[in-house]
Design a protein around this nucleic acid. Structure first.
Lengths: 141, 141
DNA sequence: TCGTTATCTTGACTCATTCAAAAAAAGCCG
DNA sequence: CGGCTTTTTTTGAATGAGTCAAGATAACGA
């Protein structure tokens, strides 16, 4: 884990309990959704407001310390694995997320064939399917 | 445009005014969000309920007649271009969407290097950036 | 330690989307 | 063509993730 205090201080931001607790929660619960993050944070710091968690997550995301994943139809999820080029598989049934290193290499699909004049800064890839568990159980939502 | 009546009948579904109007609206307004689709449908059929439009869109999406795009932070968008392999560029600022044919070819990134036992059926790619217009105007939301 | 200012708490609010019950209309059948 | 059954639509309320705003609190530089 990166030194969060340093990251925050470097950005002239205060090192506060919610922020540290949120990063710790995201680190120990990869791909947790917001609700889960709030619950995890409250284990160490029972009185945090959901707002503080939302704020911290947003902040940490902007600082690049955590990464936000938002599969459609599911609430946002967060992970502390950043800086490498990896994507996600999402289960259509239960929303479970797993990491995937793209087969193409470092920067797959980063250059679109025709960018329509857009200034592209990120390519997001999500694989959709069924997780092992949901393949066996009869896929009822 | 595909014969929507045939598609619906083939699926044992009724050919109704909302459904036909929704497909027509999506066809003539590529990448329109739900609100825009509702407005467009109401130009031909002023009394449709939003619910009927939602239902029709969901149905047409399931039938594969239209495709749903859900960029995070923006409401769902729909397009009638289906069956080919294309992706989207989304403007972070205004939410505008444009089509992109992937540079890699027909099926980019379809096989993840390690699928974790998932049964993958779709790879979704979204390029994020700024549309030409928002690059010039000072990107204020 | 003190004061300034960023951050957190609280609680209300938004807005796309969904739910549910009753009304309407597709289309099968005679 | 007109009635009947079933699917769709209407209507209106509800949900839920996420945001907003004002006052209270706590970081941290001096």
């Amino acid at each position: 884990m990166v030194g969060i205090e340093e990251v925050l201080r470097a950005a002239s931001l205060r090192v506060t309990r919610p922020r540290v607790a949120v990063l710790s929660a995201v680190t120990s619960h990869p791909h947790a959704d917001t609700e889960t993050v709030i619950a995890a944070v409250r284990e160490q710091y029972p009185t945090v407001s959901h707002q503080a968690v939302y704020d911290s997550l947003k902040l940490l995301t902007e600082l690049g310390v955590v990464r936000k994943i938002q599969p459609h139809g599911h609430s946002a999820r967060y992970e502390a694995r950043v800086g490498d080029n990896h994507h996600h598989v999402v289960c259509r049934n239960c929303g479970m997320v797993a990491d995937v290193d793209c087969s193409v290499g470092d920067s797959p699909c980063l250059c679109a064939s025709d960018d329509h004049g857009f200034l592209i800064d990120e390519a997001e890839v999500i694989y959709w399917g069924l997780c092992p568990e949901c393949q066996f159980s009869s896929q009822t939502p």
